[in-house]
Amino acid sequence: MIIDVKNIVCRFDEIAAVDNVSLAVDKGEVVCIIGPSGSGKSTLLRCLNALEDIQEGEIIIDGFRIDSRHKEIHQIRLEVGMVFQNFNLFPHLTVLKNVNLAQRVVRKRKRDEATRISNELLNKVGLTDKINAFPGQLSGGQKQRVAIARALAMNPKIMLFDEVTSALDPEMIGEVLEVMKQLAKEGMTMLVVTHEIGFAREVANRIILIDEGKIVEEGTPEQVLDNPQNQRTREFLGKVL
């Protein structure tokens, strides 16, 4: 078990965005989290990276307890790569430097080594010809693939994807999902918040449906998508499918 979330509560001004959620993920598992907007799926993901504080419960990742006030939180975050809906590439750096930077200052890799790794990863996401471009010169799909390469460059044990295709034009969604499928095949542990039900069905080992901060349904894609037990799951799927 690489992720162990026990009864966490994350509140914003007394409103619980994540309300008593427990979740265990094994190494190599791909878990897709679906649910209506505002249901708390992104917040849950952000808690795993200590981008949001939890008020109750605990999160243990690879044996370490996650706590944003903890001094070693930077070390623990290294093990968890995150890709955001809005890419959050560094606009003042080229693609290569975006991928290199954290390797250099955090992993303390030499320039040559970092560049070699970056080139490898950028090749893998199909952006070899863009290494010297700035983020402003890329399409949304290309930006998101750079963001994935940037996160992978830190050799994370877990990858978190927070609605990574939601800000993309429809014709660019495929290229990003393709990279994610490849990652899943290679055995990366992945937590994916997504609205792409088709992707979830194809790639996920497990699907979780969250509504109003609570897990309302959990199971294999067949169980959740084809034979939902909960009324709210049926309503949600009725809208999106």
Binding site: N49, L51, H74, Q75, R77, L78, V80, G81, M82, F84, N88, L89, F90, L101, A102, V105, V106, A147, R150, A151, M154
Partner: peptide
Amino acid sequence: QHEAAMSLGM
């Protein structure tokens, strides 16, 4: 930008 940097362990 802060979040992206922090998520990279900076």
